[in-house]
Amino acid sequence: MSGPTLYGLAAALLVGLGLYGVLAQASPLRRVLAFNLMGAGVFLMFGVAARRGAAAGLPGDPVPQALVITGIVVAFAATALAVMLMRRLAQTRAEEAAAAASSAPAEHG
């Protein structure tokens, strides 16, 4: 077995693991983490294609490598948006609960 094939199999496993995590985990934070694992698997698939396509004196095909760089930055932005949404959701829930708790006795009393 060659190195790239080994990494390809690892990529397949990572995609499977990540996909299971995204679908089956309950907490949003773990879903985001699993999404990143799945993303890593997908990027590795590109990386394996790049390594197998090594030619012209290069260690790998530069086109998929560049795609992965773009992809990593996009995945970071997605993670950040998700984390900030979770943070804001937690704050808003606490505020709304506090508001409901303070207004409920007033309404009935």
């Binding site: 995609v15 990540g18 996909l19 995204v22 679908l23 949003p28 879903r31 999404f35 799945m38 993303g39 698997g41 997908v42 698939m45 590109f46 394996v48 294609a49 197998r52 086109v63 998929p64 795609l67 992809g71 997605a78 948006l81 998700a82 949404l85 979770m86 959701l89």
Partner: peptide, 24 residues
């Protein structure tokens, strides 16, 4: 919005996976 984002991200990841296979 959070649920929408999670669905959209799973969708993108699967799409990108297929793209990687096609490039390979």
């Amino acid at each position: 919005a959070l649920r929408y984002l999670v669905f959209a991200l799973i969708g993108s990841a699967l799409y990108l996976l297929g793209t990687a296979l096609l490039y390979g």
